[in-house]
Write a protein that binds this DNA or RNA. Structure first.
Lengths: 341, 341
DNA sequence: CTGTTAGCGCGTTCAA
DNA sequence: TTGAACGCGCTAACAG
């Protein structure tokens, strides 16, 4: 910066103004300085900028797993939504469990890991934070939420003090249930999750069970084994056993990814979908579900992101109070595919 | 930090040491300070740390599009590879073109956009940078490469001064060609790209053409129309026309994503794969290609990431010189699916 | 092992 | 419209 200032025959302060408040600098001087800066390859040091200005154009994003298409979409969408207003998303991916030997009962460790990442995110002193992971607990977020705007997304976090923009799981469960009912199934297997592993998935599963039961459908609760590399395979074996015994004619999954994995698995194990068993997913994202023709529910990702971004920007500008636990829920839409009947 | 120091009855310097160089602090003092910091919710300001230490535990990643599974895998893999050594990946996603009205000939604008993002990344003063985008040009990277370690990945950037860890497109083209030949095709359509739009895809396409031609196969060059929202649809129409006229029996795509999009499109337009036309992809990533049973070539993502990360870490530690244009190429492996014959 | 001191590169007063 | 001076929160010598 000093070099640019010297070259232009001005002080560092003027150079600084050119990059932070160009309007208050003489037009000619400004363009001359810009040219010199470009020629010299000067790029402002954000760390120093942030430190001196006590503000940041950075918005943190704690995200579960970027290889998960649902999160990737969210990420991508947020980037563009906030970029228009001059903000940047700094993502902290907790990471996939793909190559990790995460065994039974290690959900606790994953939570610790998420908390670490969240703290790291805070160390960057972002203007605000989006939290997009199902594992972390409200009480771990709360301390930060009192310092900067925090929006939980797209999980419909119920905690009264946390802002949340998310999927209307209640409505969604009803929609999925109706799809199953409309397809004529009378006996249905439903994948469920433990509350402590994923509140969202817990609500999804229980919601579907509630609606199906109320409609007189016979429901078979099939809990997803605790987190672990072979959990899904064990789950599939259970379903295969159920199919063999004609316990139910359709299976409701907690997300598309697992539904599709099951379809691939079933194919390899001589089980036909939907002849032997109907399959319904949950999220409707990703190319794979389109290819399979998966019957599923499409989450309103774009709506959620737009609302989340506009809420965040409103809070950053001080137009919206960030400590009132504002809630916004959006319902998805049914996607009729070829896997349910 | 001052509050923590006061509370512990030590100076700020000691608190600082606890978080940057714990070994040189008295063990008891250190743990006492840590406890106080935790209680007070103190989190170090990274901007200040970075400014004062003139170093960063941050590695930048310029990435084309996180919603693209190939890049997402790369991203995720890098995060974990460098985290083990105490580094963090800060990704700058140039963004998908999904919702953008990117018309014909706007490749130039996308390049400008990428350059802006790269500059922004530099403003964060990372220790090094991974460049994972096909559009940006060597001369736009070079100025940065002289300042910090830069590794281009996974595109096999040929520029002699740039480090690159990437896919061995030469070998890959040979492998794909062999798959097509082995499937018995004599007349083949090959998707090609413009050199200025994507060097990698250009090399891929030309490589396949070269190998097929040398094997006596009749090749039909089918260039992908310039970037634009309807480019792919126009391409598909061309292929459909070719199929109708029996010009060729198989089509070689430049990546799985487009191959799968074609398969979905073909399905909707009454064209059967592989009966009417065989399809071969390129990259072998993503759940969708598995579902389709796409015949394709699997890129060695993990190998590339591991090598890239270890190179980067070596450079950051000064064990490897970063200005020698080191090159590492890895060949993929053929995936025999159901779409080629 | 710990405290003191001098910056890191910038934004932002306050005068001029 | 510009420059001088101060400080953001922290690390890195150096001395003790």
């Amino acid at each position: 910066m000093q070099m640019v200032a010297d070259e232009a025959g001005v002080s560092r302060a003027t150079v600084s103004r050119v990059f932070s408040n160009p309007e208050i600098v003489d037009k000619e001087t400004a363009s001359r300085i810009k040219a010199i800066a470009a020629r010299l390859g000067y790029i402002r040091n954000e760390a120093a900028t942030q430190l001196a200005s006590r503000s940041s154009d950075l918005i943190g994003l704690l995200v579960r797993d970027v290889t998960n298409e649902a999160y990737a979409r969210l990420y991508d969408n947020l980037i563009h939504s906030v970029l228009d207003e001059g903000y940047f998303i700094n993502a902290m991916s907790v990471g996939s469990t793909r190559n990790k030997n995460v065994g039974t009962g290690q959900a606790a460790e994953m939570k610790r890991h998420e908390n670490k990442r969240l703290a790291r995110l805070m160390s960057l002193r972002p203007g605000g934070i989006f939290v997009s992971t199902g594992l972390i607990k409200p009480q771990d977020i709360l301390p930060y939420a009192s310092q900067i705007p925090v929006i939980v997304m797209p999980h419909p976090e119920p905690h009264p003090q946390l802002n949340a923009v998310g999927y209307d799981e209640e409505s969604n469960a009803r929609i999925v249930s109706q799809m199953i009912i409309d397809a004529g199934h009378k006996k249905v297997g439903v994948m469920t999750a433990l509350r402590e592993n994923s509140l969202t998935e817990y609500i999804r599963g229980e919601g579907v069970i509630k609606h199906l039961s109320e409609a007189g459908i016979e429901v078979f609760r099939r809990p997803l084994p605790p987190i672990g590399s072979d959990a899904l395979d064990r789950f599939f074996l259970t379903v295969a056993e159920d199919v063999k015994n004609n316990r139910y004619t359709a299976m409701s999954f907690l997300n598309d990814h697992r539904a599709i994995k099951f379809i691939i698995w079933a194919q390899e194990h001589g089980i036909k979908v939907p002849e032997d068993i109907g399959v319904v997913g949950y999220d409707g994202l990703g190319q794979a579900s389109k290819v399979v023709g998966l019957s599923t529910l499409r989450h309103p990702v774009d709506q959620v992101c737009e609302k989340g971004a506009s809420e965040m920007l409103g809070m950053l500008k001080g137009e919206i109070r960030s400590n009132e636990g504002r809630k916004f829920l959006f319902a998805g839409e049914p996607i009729t595919g070829r896997t349910l009947s």
